[in-house]
Amino acid sequence: MKILVCLSNVPDTTTKIKLNGDQSALDMTGVQWVINPWDELALTRALDLKEKSEGKIDTITVITVGESLTEPTIRKALAVGADDAVRINLNPTDDYEVASNIAAWVKNNPYNIILTGIESSDYNGSAVGGMLAEFLKIPSVSSVSFLDMEGDKPLMKREIPGGTETIRVPMPFVAIVQKGIALDPRIPAMRGIMMARKKELTVVEPAGEGSKSTYIGFAMPKAKAKVKMIDAENAGQLITLLHEEAKVI
């Protein structure tokens, strides 16, 4: 059995967002690039499943759509235990382009389970997993917080508003995962980093469709008015202010 984990290369979540002078682009100078946090959890779960599968899961492959500057992120995924990696050599413009290009690879290189994070922490697209499944005409399950194998059959839980549903779909499928799918991501050890250098990283040229949308400008949120402090001794006054001034209760 083979698992594919889709990775997005994103600015570290503590990054302060800055715009360039004419607000046409984000200023990415000095940004630390990391694996998108949800993709990292997906990878962690895939590795856990492989380790306890007694050989039933053969390989964990990671794939990313990006130019060579994404390779440190891919190497990190290999260092924590992914078996091999694919990089589609394209600086993508939107989710449609990303999903279409991953689908083009998967059509010739099938996997039993494909994992994506529920969104990327940069453009918050939330669309690659669903689009990928539709391009491949296979099932997708979204907001997955639990994935396990019951014998040869995968079992999932998805988070619905106010609860969970336990779901099964036939393989191959795309699971779009969220928080809860795995505990803390793995930290690469020196041995893993050394081994990652020898693992195969296949670079392929794009074979999918182009984008349908493009960012033409950016803006920062409006600055907030200064906080109004309330004396702790009279904390109850807050309730009055929320009713009379803010009018939210």
Partner: peptide, 24 residues
């Protein structure tokens, strides 16, 4: 809506309609 169901379904609809998508 950019909620649980919207996130699950809208991307697939976009591909079926060959449509660009904006969420949130």
């Amino acid at each position: 809506a950019n909620n649980f169901t919207g996130k699950a379904v809208a991307p697939r609809v976009a591909v079926k309609l060959e449509a660009g998508m904006a969420n949130s």
